[in-house]
């Protein structure tokens, strides 16, 4: 049986930031008709080279922290790992049930009932209805919500209840690979504190973790590997302390890059 893994081989990715005019079909047709003169105006799309030749080999058991200043490509890289963005060049291979915790509420519909949301979230993950059913009992007992409460639309839940449900669903459907963006942790200090135990369990159980963060303590706590990204390139991959030290040294040397 193949173990969970993520392999990136020379991954390049660039995208355009479109202005209002470049998103208009009328405008595009007009510029085609006028020999593309308007199209190439100063309002043309801006190309962003987000990832430049990324090579990564993430194995079973790795807990990887992505570090780098804003705009270094951490979020883009996470999206590539999630399979949401297809790189322009290079090869990505990922083995294992993957859960992207970029948004705890992802795939939840506030008009639908708690039960529906459990099923929906599982289907989004790629599980079959039967597999989801076999997990439902755990999810319910973990969420601490009553069956009665779960038949109501999530819209009527208090924010605490909604969070309990969301977190139970995303964590009980035990993924092999867990991708996290740091805002889940930093956006709500209270949440982190309360969810700590559960998150720790999940991180222990998952076979591969990749987290993008600015917070050193999170990486030191959770990771056994760090990847330092800068302007879309991997500067170094290695043990957490070494990589963090390098990152801080670089940042001190180039203060204009600070955060």
């Amino acid at each position: 049986m193949e173990a969970p893994c993520i392999q990136l081989d020379d991954v390049w990715l660039d995208y355009s930031i479109y202005g209002a005019k470049t998103r208009s079909l009328r405008h595009a047709v007009a510029s085609l008709a006028t020999g593309r003169r308007v199209w190439r105006g100063e309002d043309g799309p801006t190309r962003v080279q987000a990832l430049k030749g990324i090579d990564l080999d993430i194995r079973d058991g790795d807990r990887v922290g992505l570090i780098g200043s804003n705009g270094a490509g951490k979020t883009t890289l996470l999206r590539v790992l999630a399979g949401a963005m297809w790189p322009a060049r290079g090869h990505v291979r990922r083995v294992g049930l993957t859960s992207a915790l970029f948004d705890v509420y992802l795939g939840m519909n506030s008009e639908a009932s708690g039960w529906d949301n459990i099923t929906l979230r599982g289907l989004f993950l790629g599980l079959s209805v039967a597999e989801i059913r076999s997990h439902t009992e755990e999810i319910v007992s973990f969420s601490g919500l009553s069956r009665d409460q779960l038949s109501r639309p999530v819209r009527t839940f208090s924010s605490g209840m909604a969070l309990r449900l969301a977190l139970s669903v995303s964590t009980c459907l035990n993924p092999h690979i867990l991708l996290m963006d740091e805002w889940i942790w930093v956006s709500d200090a209270d949440f982190v504190q309360r969810a700590q135990q559960r998150m720790n369990d999940m991180i222990r159980q998952t076979r591969i973790l990749v987290i993008a963060t600015h917070a050193d303590y999170l990486i030191q706590q959770m990771c056994n590997k760090a990847v330092y990204l800068r302007h879309g390139e991997v500067i170094s991959v290695g043990p957490v302390d070494e990589t963090l030290a390098l990152y801080h040294a670089r940042r001190a040397a180039q203060p204009e890059e600070a955060i």
Binding site: P87, V92, R93, V95, L97, T98, E138, S141, F142, R207
Partner: peptide, 20 residues
């Protein structure tokens, strides 16, 4: 405060392959 839940073992990883 809920007792540490034991989640079921994940399905086989090879069933979930994503490759460009």
């Amino acid at each position: 405060t809920v007792a540490n839940p034991v989640c079921a073992t994940p399905a086989r990883p090879a069933r979930h392959v994503w490759e460009t």
